[in-house]
Structures are given as structure tokens and as C-alpha cells.
């Protein structure tokens, strides 16, 4: 016999005057292959068209459907209800700006990260559209591929105590991102230049090492390895650096 599922969902629209945050319950019978993504769509189509949540790809690629499901950040499209108890609590991700109900603005946060860490290949080589693409060693390509799998869902940020209390901390995804460029031989930035970006409390030295990010990243990126790599590399670079220094008063 199929289980009766009860979804307790956070409802609040900050743009609606007078709206108050509350939990609202919806109930229906479980069926085979049900994911949280399908369940939320069913609720919106059949029970409550005002329910707000995000999704695009429904295949764990776009990273937009992250939410707190029974207290832990997960991708709705990658979460099967069969693995959950029959009572399911759904909340929006903390840290990010609430758009309404389960929908949060991860875009602005990640855009800032992009700019802050300059997440692009820095090179002085002139691009020649007619030349053959430069080959990369397979081993390095595979190394880069690991951090590169990040889908910018924000789960690691939402679950990190440090990111929750320190607004400027770039989180595991940010440090992971920079370590991706450090590994890339095409990026000509020196260690000193990376140090400028993440050699501080907002970056590599801000992480306290709680590993919630590593345990709960839906893409299972080896974040501990990436965080420790960046920390060691930045410490080594920093110790070598000479700063001219400006004496203030």
C-alpha cells in the first residue's frame, strides 16, 4: 500500500504586503519514482498555484532546485521521497536572499563570487581562431574536472556555520572554484595573485573545517581535499610574499 505523504512547506512572500511567514501542509499518496521535484510540481499544479520554487533542468545540472529538505540542503530533483519519512519539512536555503516560499536568489551571490574571485582564465596569449586547440594532459584535465563539476546550487554555503555568520566568507564553493584555476596551467596568475584573492579570512583561512559542505554537497565534490589544497597552497605562497606596506599615521 502506498504511503500518505505530508509536506510541510515554508510559505512567505516578502513582496506581498501583510504576508506573514508560516508553514503550510499538503498531503497526497506516494507513487513510484516520486522525487521532491515532481511532488512540488504536483502540489503547484493540483493544489496551490501560488507556491513558489525554482527548477530548470530536473536532472541535477542547473543547481537551481536546492532547498532544505528535512533540515538538510538537497537538490529537489535528485531527492527521492522513498528515502524520506512520510512527513517532509521543506524550507528555503538560508544565507541567500529570499524571493518567496522556497525560491531564493543564489544568482546574485554567485555573480559576486565570480567577480570577487575572477573566475575566468587569465592569460596574455592572443587567441588565434585558426590554430589547433592546445592539448592538455589527461591527468590535469581530470584533476580540474573534479572541482569543475560544481553546479552552483549553494548547498555548501547554506549548511556552513561560517558562511551563515560571516557574510563575506566565499564558502566551500568559492574556495573550490579558485583551486580549480590554480590547477589549470592555462591560467597565468601567480600564487601571489591568488593569495590576493583567497589568502585571507574571507577565503581559504576562513574555513573552520566542519565539513558539512563536504558531507552534503549533492555533486559529491571532494571539498575537503579542495579546501585543504587551497589552504596549504595559500599558506606557502603567503609566507614567501613581501609586502611593501603602508604606514598609516
Amino acid at each position: 500500500m502506498a504511503r500518505q505523504l505530508t509536506f510541510s512547506i515554508f510559505r512567505y512572500n516578502p513582496n506581498k504586503p501583510g504576508d506573514k511567514p508560516r508553514m503550510q501542509e499538503y498531503s497526497f499518496e506516494e507513487f513510484e519514482g516520486l522525487t521532491m521535484f515532481v511532488a512540488l510540481n504536483k502540489i503547484r499544479e493540483e493544489m496551490d498555484p501560488t507556491l513558489m520554487f525554482d527548477f530548470v533542468c530536473r536532472a541535477a545540472i542547473c543547481g537551481s532546485c536546492a532547498m532544505m529538505i528535512n533540515g538538510r540542503p538537497r537538490l529537489a530533483c535528485k531527492t527521492m521521497t522513498i528515502n524520506l519519512p512520510s512527513r517532509i519539512t521543506v524550507m528555503p536555503l538560508p544565507v541567500f536572499k529570499l524571493i518567496g516560499d522556497l525560491s531564493v536568489d543564489t544568482g546574485t551571490w554567485f555573480r559576486n563570487l565570480q567577480v570577487k574571485t575572477e573566475s575566468w582564465i587569465h592569460t596574455n596569449k592572443k587567441f588565434d581562431p585558426n590554430a589547433l586547440e592546445v592539448r592538455m594532459e589527461n591527468k590535469i584535465a581530470e584533476q580540474i574536472y573534479e572541482p569543475e563539476r560544481c553546479v552552483e546550487c549553494g548547498c555548501c554555503v547554506a549548511t556552513c556555520v561560517t558562511a551563515n555568520i560571516r557574510e563575506d566568507f566565499i564558502g566551500a564553493t568559492g574556495i573550490n572554484r579558485v583551486s580549480r584555476f590554480m590547477m589549470d596551467p592555462r591560467d597565468e596568475r601567480s600564487d601571489a595573485e591568488y593569495y590576493e584573492v583567497v589568502g585571507n579570512e574571507d577565503g581559504a583561512f576562513g574555513c573552520v573545517g566542519l565539513m558539512a559542505c563536504a558531507d552534503l554537497c549533492p555533486m559529491e565534490i571532494p571539498l575537503q581535499t579542495q579546501l585543504a589544497y587551497a589552504r596549504r597552497k595559500m599558506a606557502a605562497a603567503g609566507l614567501k610574499l613581501q609586502f611593501a606596506g603602508v604606514k598609516i599615521s
Partner: peptide
């Protein structure tokens, strides 16, 4: 790497080594 360097300087505060020493300590 002049371009990158200049960008980096304008977009980020320079923290020096304090945060590193504190973390190591």
C-alpha cells in the same frame, strides 16, 4: 599579467599576512 594584477587590486582589499599568521597561530 599586468591586466590581471590591476583588476585584482581594484576589486579586492589587500589583506597582507595577518589572516595567514593568525590562522597558523
Amino acid at each position: 599579467m599586468e591586466l590581471a594584477k590591476n583588476l585584482q587590486k581594484t576589486l579586492n582589499k589587500s589583506y597582507g599576512k595577518t589572516d595567514l599568521y593568525v590562522d597558523l597561530a
